[in-house]
Computed example of a mutant assay.
Amino acid sequence: MSGGSPSSLASDDGAGSILTVAIIGSVVALTMVVLPVYAGFAARRSVAGAADASALAAADTAVGLLPGFPCDAASTVAAANGAMITACVVDGLVVTVTASRAVLGIAVTAVATAGPVGAGVD
């Protein structure tokens, strides 16, 4: 039977196609929500690594193992890791740096402290 009879309207022909399109749409929507969150987590770890490396380089410079100024060394290392130093505090041989990078328009920051053993670094 074809045409506009009531029995053809009650048929579930094509329901699988609609369900498939709905599932694909749901997966795409979920991916669009979750992907930026994972990008933020990855950026946080990356900035934390940049802050750690920058603090270590600055502490090595403060101790005298490397020539130059501690905060300049921290800035150089942070730039090499895709971040920038927003704060650098030298307290004797202990250096605390704050590194930052913008990800998806949001500033991601991390703080790291480094210095020689026994110099008051927690």
Results as ranks from 00 to 15, higher is better:
residue 2 S to T: 15
residue 3 G to I: 03
residue 4 G to H: 15
residue 5 S to D: 13
residue 5 S to P: 07
residue 7 S to E: 10
residue 11 S to W: 00
residue 12 D to Q: 09
residue 13 D to I: 11
residue 17 S to R: 04
residue 19 L to P: 13
residue 21 V to H: 05
residue 21 V to G: 09
residue 22 A to R: 04
residue 23 I to H: 07
residue 23 I to S: 07
residue 27 V to F: 10
residue 27 V to T: 10
residue 28 V to R: 08
residue 28 V to K: 10
residue 30 L to Q: 10
residue 31 T to I: 12
residue 32 M to Y: 13
residue 33 V to W: 04
residue 35 L to H: 03
residue 35 L to K: 02
residue 37 V to C: 01
residue 37 V to P: 03
residue 38 Y to P: 00
residue 39 A to S: 14
residue 40 G to F: 09
residue 40 G to R: 03
residue 41 F to S: 07
residue 42 A to Y: 05
residue 43 A to N: 01
residue 43 A to V: 11
residue 45 R to S: 15
residue 45 R to E: 14
residue 46 S to R: 15
residue 46 S to M: 14
residue 47 V to Y: 07
residue 47 V to W: 09
residue 48 A to D: 12
residue 49 G to N: 04
residue 50 A to F: 11
residue 51 A to D: 06
residue 55 A to M: 08
residue 57 A to R: 00
residue 58 A to S: 01
residue 58 A to Y: 02
residue 58 A to G: 02
residue 58 A to W: 02
residue 59 A to P: 05
residue 60 D to R: 03
residue 60 D to S: 06
residue 61 T to S: 04
residue 65 L to M: 09
residue 67 P to A: 12
residue 67 P to Y: 02
residue 67 P to C: 01
residue 70 P to A: 07
residue 71 C to E: 01
residue 72 D to S: 06
residue 72 D to A: 08
residue 74 A to L: 03
residue 74 A to M: 03
residue 74 A to Y: 07
residue 75 S to H: 08
residue 76 T to A: 11
residue 78 A to T: 00
residue 79 A to R: 12
residue 80 A to S: 09
residue 81 N to L: 08
residue 81 N to H: 14
residue 83 A to K: 11
residue 85 I to G: 12
residue 87 A to H: 02
residue 89 V to K: 12
residue 90 V to E: 11
residue 90 V to A: 14
residue 90 V to M: 01
residue 90 V to H: 00
residue 91 D to K: 11
residue 91 D to L: 09
residue 91 D to Q: 13
residue 91 D to E: 14
residue 91 D to S: 15
residue 92 G to P: 12
residue 93 L to W: 13
residue 100 S to D: 13
residue 101 R to A: 15
residue 101 R to W: 02
residue 101 R to Q: 11
residue 102 A to W: 13
residue 102 A to V: 15
residue 102 A to P: 14
residue 103 V to Q: 15
residue 104 L to R: 14
residue 104 L to V: 14
residue 104 L to W: 06
residue 105 G to M: 11
residue 105 G to T: 13
residue 105 G to V: 09
residue 106 I to P: 07
residue 107 A to F: 04
residue 108 V to F: 10
residue 109 T to D: 12
residue 112 A to G: 01
residue 112 A to H: 08
residue 112 A to F: 05
residue 114 A to M: 08
residue 114 A to H: 05
residue 115 G to K: 07
residue 115 G to E: 04
residue 116 P to R: 06
residue 117 V to C: 04
residue 120 G to Q: 04
residue 121 V to K: 06
residue 121 V to R: 10
residue 122 D to Q: 07
